[in-house]
Design a protein around this nucleic acid. Structure first.
Lengths: 141, 141
DNA sequence: CTACATCCTCTAGCGACTAGAGGAGCAAGC
DNA sequence: GCTTGCTCCTCTAGTCGCTAGAGGATGTAG
């Protein structure tokens, strides 16, 4: 376990691309790391963990502003966790709504694809359904 | 049924906002409509249908480039519909993958929220799970 | 005739990156 | 030492699909 990690090292280990790491630093999600004599960033295990935290949160769909709050909470563990819990709950609701919406779209796409008779476009269901919303059986949108 | 519709009329009837309609025109999704003496755009039922088509396709998550192709196909209905069918099928696969991914995230978020004991952050599951990906039971990401 | 809504063009901003230019540093092989 | 080639640096600009705002013209209702 190296103690001085280059930006490439942390990129490999965290799965976050090098330019994205620099971008996170630029927007203040990551602190400015120390530099070598040759002006290169170097990181320690703490920096790597912070980046892994960010990556995981991004994968879960949290916005950067939410991650900013979560990181601040992590930095001050004397705070009650109601805030973190609230952010997670809000995200859960978003995800549930997005799933419901996508399920409806899936059903609609399936009908379109299913009914396409592979003939001429004149009777193609894909075009037809898109052209006339009334032809789709769902009222979700 | 008016035959000369202002941009505001088609916005109301299609549910697409006025600046978005102008944007669609700018990127070539909509043809440049004729203008009144006072330089205002006016539309007919055909223009409104084209906009409704675009809106529905966007709601189904099709990208603008895909919609461009679908519109071209619609304009030339002698073409086989295999292309339209392919676009819809590709989108269906995307949607299915997105649903699967969101279901996994939902499960993970539920565990996080469920296990949060509403105590101090020191033992908050939300922060903890985010900080250590190994603590989450899914290997989807 | 005066408000006020709607329209026009134009430029710039959003989020979360991603790509590319142009140059400097570093490690390994010869 | 020297060259090759990879990684790093900064900076600007582009992506997608809009959205917001400035600053001005036009149309409509009372």
């Amino acid at each position: 376990m190296k103690s001085e990690l280059t930006i490439g090292d942390v990129a490999r280990e965290s799965g976050v691309k090098v330019p994205t790491i620099r971008y996170y630093e630029q927007i203040g999600l990551l602190p400015e790391p120390p530099r070598t004599d040759g002006n290169r960033r170097f990181y320690d295990q703490k920096g790597l963990r912070r980046l892994a935290f960010i990556r995981h949160a991004r994968e879960l769909g949290f916005e950067v502003s939410a991650i900013r709050t979560l990181l601040a909470l992590q930095d001050d563990p004397t705070q009650p966790c109601a805030t973190a819990d609230g952010i997670a709950k809000a995200r859960l609701i978003e995800v549930e709504q997005r799933i419901a919406s996508l399920m409806a779209l899936k059903a609609e796409l399936e009908v379109m694809v299913e009914e396409c008779r592979h003939g001429r476009l004149a009777e193609c269901r894909v075009i037809e359904v898109l052209a006339d919303h009334g032809k789709c059986m769902h009222d979700h949108h």
